[in-house]
Design a protein around this nucleic acid. Structure first.
Lengths: 192, 192
DNA sequence: GTCTATATCAGGATAGAC
DNA sequence: GTCTATCCTGATATAGAC
């Protein structure tokens, strides 16, 4: 059925992008991966750029599922939740790798393809907001701008570390350690 | 003369890559940009991959010139030098933009092209080392591992912020501010 | 909605003259 | 060393049947 195929294509796109990059995504390889014809991809997504856009959306939705919705935990829970959600980026599981890779690719592609920027900016903002929110639950007295700045730094750092990890420049365990310590450092900053 | 043309091609390649990305580099556009024929590019660099390799080398050599060599400044100078060298990444000057863009492209491409990883790792290590060195001059009593960890976080953050800037997700001034504050935060961390 | 077959074309690469 | 002219592959996209 239609919806299933659509989804299969998006899942396939995430896999192919993780394997070849946005730059390396070939419509025919995607078709094979998803078990459909190229024509069907064009039918559903109009063109290559459309595939990219929807895949980005798909991926960020999927990443949202990582974040729990519990809003009423105490500071201790928030701290654990924060670390959990940030370190989730650094796991050698296929889906996580896919998400990280695809996210990095989309970010990098957006430098040259302005059409991608809107969605990317939206997703980034949401992410920053979520992190700022968690920080705020740990440091209830910290002013909002400081929380946002810390969240911006943490998320940007995560992206930087993630790319280094994926490009083989940084072992996974070390990346996790650096990220974890960054949380400590920023929380210290937000203390007074 | 031969050497001039070679150089013109490499400079042109840096500009084109900054504008279109590694993937967007077209041999013909490069030829026009450099004022030569496509055939000459192949004559000098064998193929497209050769152009890429030599351009990346060209660019990292050029970026080295940014870093000053003065080794004997006091803590105050070191702090300024640190901020200067880190914030240098965030300027809207053609050459800086070219270098940042190409660096980001290189980093992103390395995720899928292992051949690129060696050079990249080397250059990254040098950078981390330089930053750790400056941090050490400001905090002479801090242990080396802590200095390295801070340098790793700062440089990874820079890469993250840089990509956000170049992809239009983060205004230049804001990126500078976040980077500057990150220096403060890390130096605070290294205090005790 | 989905496929097969194919048009179209951009762009990498080379031949050969100068 | 450098150019003009051209070949040819690989990839996007569409036509049209089912």
């Amino acid at each position: 059925m239609s919806t299933d195929r659509r989804r299969a294509i998006l899942e396939g796109a995430a896999r192919v992008i993780a394997r070849r990059g946005v730059r390396g995504l070939r419509m025919e390889e995607l078709a094979t991966e998803a078990g459909v014809s190229t024509a069907l991809i064009y039918y559903h997504f109009k063109d290559r750029a459309g595939v990219l856009r929807h895949t980005l959306e798909f991926i960020s939705d999927r990443a949202d599922r990582y974040t729990s919705d519990d809003e009423d935990g105490g500071a201790h829970d928030a701290r654990r939740e924060l670390e959990r959600s940030l370190l989730l980026e650094f796991q050698d599981l296929p889906e996580v790798r896919e998400n990280s890779t695809a996210w990095g690719e989309l970010r990098a592609s957006a430098v040259f393809e302005p059409e991608l920027r809107g969605d990317l900016a939206r997703a980034t903002l949401t992410w920053i907001h979520d992190v700022a929110d968690l920080l705020g639950r740990i440091r209830p007295t910290a002013p909002a701008p400081a929380l946002t700045a810390s969240a911006e730094r943490l998320t940007a750092l995560l992206e930087g570390l993630s790319t280094r990890w994926l490009s083989g420049a940084l072992p996974l365990a070390h990346a996790r350690e650096l990220a974890k310590e960054a949380v400590t450092v920023e929380l210290e900053r937000l203390r007074d």
